[in-house]
Design a binder for these strands. Structure first.
Lengths: 332, 332
DNA sequence: TTGAAAGCGTTACCAC
DNA sequence: GTGGTAACGCTTTCAA
């Protein structure tokens, strides 16, 4: 029964609401015995401050918001979880607002949070144009952009260096002596696939290797997409012994199709995924992949969003994916 | 810049705040032209109602809360996602509050939500005692309990019939002519493992089969737990051709160990999991499992929590797990 | 050390 | 149709 208000406590304690407010907020200048008496009343009467009233007068809420496309996707669930941990440590409530991957709904998700007077928001947005975001960030000093880099607001971006990821995959394939190399990419119209591919190609080039255009296929970044892409690859009738795949889900789809066609992974073909989601440790063979350190990225984003004064001169926060070698790759 | 208040709009439009409030809330009795003029001002001045002020006077917030142990766990992520979908449809903000699996932190998560004046809360709690929950639900008519059944508040419970799940597994093993049967269960001190096992044993009995006590092992409900449990099983030196496993993660661990020891699934041993999480479709062999319809359960829970008048005479909401046959089982 | 009172931005009731 | 105004529960000067 959280019906008791600050007035009820004040009345019961024979003091003014001001005094009660002081003890609730650990304010100074309250007599030891009054404080104790009030505290007692608070717990026996089960008083809980009304956060709405507080937010109203303070003109801000003790909340942190996060905008993601979807809670069910393991990747975004991990992102939300990282933020949640920081939120708990700082005793602020987590507000999750989902927008599909469309500029409009991403924007809607953000305004919804702003209406709650939520000041600190970690935003994952692939579709809102740069300029819109820049304007938004200028008005809202506690917004943080995750998984995306925009020059003008770089000190409030937490992003992954996709190029390096591609490069590391290329380096590893080269080290393993592969030379007939394929790539399965995402067909989504966002930057990440392009960057990963570019990095991969540059890495290959640095080892004197090249990627045959016929061996680049695109599909939706899912298990089914991976299965589809692998079939397309096989149709090319062009030999390959290694594939760099856009993400782990696709990679598992690719492997599944390959094995159905009698090709063994890693004996006949090596596969590298991307993200290192839970899945990759459960699959057989366990997936060699590039770890997306989403947990620490999320935590840092939350910390940044919560910190009162965002330091514009802070070092920029680019993260590098780490190669995790498991069982889906092998030397030729 | 969401600085404009209702007063600013009123002033600019030369009307009273009351009138502005009416158009904001689509209230009746506003002149067509005044309404239009005000609407124009609202959008040009970028006015957004302060939700805290609104909640304060309305004594309730347009939010729905959910209490789960963890956002990162795919099962709970799916639960949260179902609720989120209903929340979006009803234009209410989703509040997620995580408590580990402990009575204390589950309780903390609930009070945190109540402080926000969140009335509708979907609670997943395994540890808070029945009586506490009953008292809580009596004071809060819009709470809903998910994944647990308590007689006294049964019309506000949405739960899965674990017994039937166990029974269906038993039926299927019997149909497949298995008779040397094992069980890998969770060692967590909650009801679900007991219920699933009881249902399984009853099902077996109805087919004249029995479960050798030596072939029941307990471990943590995770991949590693499954691996461990399978090793324990093998040590018994008691033959078995089928295993009923507590959940999919464990089942994948079990399969992994089995195959490492040279036993093929399903050729040498059939495995049935529980939950039908994403994982089970990605594993090889794809898992035969009992589907936990968490998505529809979550949606119904959300609907129930949001509905103004919870009907105490409503039919109780027990769900049955459905057997999903894939590749990890086969007839003897 | 304590109290009185002025807001914070809304909604809703009652006049006009 | 429209306006005035009292709440809602809290924090924070300013006085005492």
């Amino acid at each position: 029964m959280s019906k008791a208000t600050i007035k009820d406590i004040a009345r019961a304690a024979n003091v003014s609401v001001a005094t009660v407010s002081r003890v609730v907020n650990n304010g100074p200048k309250v007599g030891a015995k009054t404080r104790e008496r009030i505290q007692h009343l608070i717990s026996t009467m089960g008083y809980q401050p009304n956060i709405n009233a507080r937010s109203l007068v303070m003109k801000k809420a003790a909340t942190i918001g996060v905008v993601i496309p979807d809670v069910a996707d393991p990747f975004f669930a991990a992102l939300a979880n990282g933020i949640d941990q920081i939120a708990r440590e700082n005793k602020v409530q987590l507000l999750i607002s989902t927008g599909q991957v469309s500029a409009e709904s991403e924007m809607k998700a953000i305004t919804s949070l702003m209406q709650q007077r939520c000041e600190s928001i970690v935003i994952h947005s692939k579709k809102i144009p740069d300029e819109t975001l820049i304007a938004l960030f200028n008005d809202n000093p506690k917004f943080v952009l995750i998984d995306r880099y925009i020059e003008a607001i770089s000190h409030r971006c937490i992003w992954l260096d996709n190029h390096i990821g591609g490069q590391k995959a290329a380096d590893y394939f080269s080290e393993l002596n592969h030379s007939n190399i394929a790539c399965v990419n995402s067909n989504l119209d966002i930057d990440d696939p392009k960057e990963r591919l570019a990095g991969f190609q540059r890495g290959l080039a640095s080892h004197g290797l090249t990627l045959n255009d016929k061996l680049i296929t695109y599909a939706s970044p899912s298990l089914q997409g991976g299965e589809q892409a692998a079939q397309d690859l096989l149709k090319q009738n062009t030999p390959f012994s290694a594939i760099f795949v856009y993400n782990d889900a696709m990679a598992i789809g690719v492997i599944s199709t390959l094995e159905d066609k009698g090709l063994s992974v890693p004996n006949d073909v090596s596969v590298i995924g991307f993200d290192d989601v839970l899945l990759s440790r459960y699959s057989r063979p366990k997936l060699t992949t590039l770890r997306y350190p989403i947990d620490s990225m999320a935590k840092n984003a939350a910390l940044l969003a919560l910190s009162a004064n965002i330091n514009p001169t802070a070092q920029s926060s680019s993260y590098s994916p780490e190669l995790v070698i498991r069982e889906s790759t092998q030397a030729l």
